[in-house]
Nucleic acid binder design. Sequence first.
DNA 1: TATTGTTATACTCTATAACTATA
DNA 2: TATAGTTATAGAGTATAACAATA
Lengths: 151, 151
Amino acid sequence: MLSDVPDLTAHLGYWLRQVSNHVSHAFARKLAAKDVTVAEWALMRVLYGEQPTSPSRLAEHMGLTRGAVTKLADRLIAKGLIARQANTSDGRAQTLELTAKGEGFVPELAALADQNESECFAHMPDDDRKALERILRDAVARFGITAIATE
Amino acid sequence: MLSDVPDLTAHLGYWLRQVSNHVSHAFARKLAAKDVTVAEWALMRVLYGEQPTSPSRLAEHMGLTRGAVTKLADRLIAKGLIARQANTSDGRAQTLELTAKGEGFVPELAALADQNESECFAHMPDDDRKALERILRDAVARFGITAIATE
DNA sequence: TATTGTTATACTCTATAACTATA
DNA sequence: TATAGTTATAGAGTATAACAATA
């Protein structure tokens, strides 16, 4: 006889994943039309309006390894959206920054983010939207999450 | 001058991803200790207590391509957790089912899922947990999501 | 020796498309 | 021809560990 195994749907984690994946995939499809991935967008968004930033700082801020940042950066450099520069005072250090092309692109991608947000949540009653945001923010604080999730 | 680009944190999608990723990663780490991935767990969970099921049906149910199911199944077969069998009436068709070993494993993994759920959400006030579940279930229904997310 | 960054390697997840066997 | 499934290929995302240059 089979043990009593709870249904998948018994878990909040399940419902979170269902909704989060739907929203993220919808956004990923919009970005793909501009030949950008969600991780690439996140890195560009982080650099927007900031001073040139080292891969290490970006890795920490985005919860990635330095190797992962290098790979992501290589792709964005190949697309002409960011630039890598040597630090003058420390021969080991590098910095990453948006190119003019990348900087001009960010608002366009941000508009897609807004569009996705509204397509996904406009239907939701105002009270629910507020409650959801509050509960999620509380959870992030409780979990002690400091890095931004790119996946 | 820079355009006015809203902060990442202005979007509900951002907060959902932060929380969902945290919960999923915490679960993935627990499963990894048993040498199982989340996608593998999802497939095993779907097969638990069911008749032998075709890859096509599984693909549809899990929102994957048939090729992805084949690959996932290959790994689970290599681990001795599921078995592939030819259908007697249709020479093209195959079915997948849990082995005895796989069936005995599911409750153990389900206990990890329960543990993860409680570690992640036990702190949450009862009202919030209920509200969160209701809001997420509503969203899933509104989005018309039918497949279970494995990612 | 320690640190910064890159490179090498590997694995999961996923897709698309070609292919094989059968219907 | 259509269908079921597998295989081939590819790319994103991620990690660990080795490495080179510099401090």
